[in-house]
Amino acid sequence: MSETTRSVVHLAVYDTLADWETGFATAHLNKPLWHKTPGRFAVSTVGPSAAPITTMGGLRITPDVVLADLKPADSAMLILPGNDIFATEAFVPFAEKAREFLDAGVPVAAICGATGGLAMAGLLDDRAHTSNAAAFLDSLGYKGGALYRDEPAVTDGDLITASATAPVEFAREILARLDVMEPQVLASWYKLYGKKDPAGFYELMSA
């Protein structure tokens, strides 16, 4: 499959990015094994500028794309990892880009602190969602409490949200929303990585 026909998933990168929260999603988007259409997806990083960022784990990442240049039409999904900047001005451009994506009907997936940034932007007021805890979002003064779901990860249309402790469930929702794998293959994938059942591995090997 040529580069021009790939669906690009954009991973937001910024200082204090929580390294562990998106690894399952990005690894299995890039790994063609078990995909319905191998080679269909590619992951690209998008940052606030072209300058390198430093993750919470101390890794330096140079963004592939600058946020201001990213258009929803050029993306299959925007993934927003957790971070320590969600309540600051530094995260506002990412929340506004998420609004642009959702308005255009392009999916957005947010986990941990990124859900807080979306809550502060009003993007969780009318969509079912989850986060690290209901009290966490309530402390931010948002208006979507009635739609909070006490679950590891929640998909409502084009929005996926998840708790910091649910990177596997977050990945499962992303893979399902993008139709990366056949449903039974994804079920086996989750059996292995989510339920830690080795039977899932043998199911995947025979898929």
Score class of each variant (00 low, 15 high):
Ser44Pro: 00
Asn30Lys: 14
Pro107Leu: 03
Pro38His: 05
Leu80Ala: 02
Ser75Asp: 14
Cys112Trp: 08
Ile79Tyr: 03
Gly122Asp: 11
Gly57Val: 00
Ala25Val: 08
Val66Glu: 14
Leu102Glu: 03
Asp84Phe: 10
Thr62Cys: 01
Arg40Ala: 15
Thr26Leu: 10
Leu70Ile: 11
Thr88Leu: 09
Leu70Cys: 13
Glu100Pro: 00
Ala51Asp: 15
Val46Arg: 06
Ala50Phe: 05
Asp74Val: 07
Ala27Ser: 15
Ile111Ala: 03
Lys31Arg: 15
Pro32Lys: 06
Gly105His: 02
Gly47Glu: 07
Phe101Val: 00
Glu96Ser: 04
Lys97Arg: 13
Trp34Asn: 08
Gly82Tyr: 05
Ala110Leu: 05
Ile111Phe: 07
Ala110Ile: 06
Thr26Asn: 02
Ile111Val: 15
Val65Gly: 00
Glu89Met: 02
Thr54Glu: 14
Phe86His: 14
Ser75Phe: 12
Leu118Gly: 04
Val46Met: 05
Ala50Asp: 15
Leu70His: 12
His35Ser: 07
Leu123Cys: 09
Phe91Arg: 02
Cys112Arg: 07
Gly122Gln: 11
Leu70Glu: 12
Val46Phe: 09
Leu78Lys: 07
Gly117Ile: 07
Pro93Lys: 04
Pro81Ala: 06
Leu80Ile: 03
Val43Ser: 05
Thr55Asn: 06
Thr37Lys: 12
Ala76Tyr: 13
Thr115Met: 04
Met120Ala: 13
Phe94Tyr: 15
Pro48Gln: 06
Ala76Phe: 13
Cys112Phe: 07
Ala76Thr: 11
Ala87Leu: 06
Val92Lys: 14
Gly113Ala: 03
Leu70Thr: 12
Gly82Pro: 02
Met120Gly: 05
Arg99Pro: 00
Val66Phe: 02
Val43Trp: 09
Arg60Thr: 15
Leu118Trp: 10
Met56Phe: 09
Asp125Lys: 04
Val108Thr: 03
Leu124His: 07
Cys112Thr: 04
Ala90Ser: 11
Ala114Met: 01
Leu78Ala: 06
Pro32Met: 08
Val65Phe: 11
Leu118Phe: 09
Ala68Ser: 15
Asn83Gly: 11
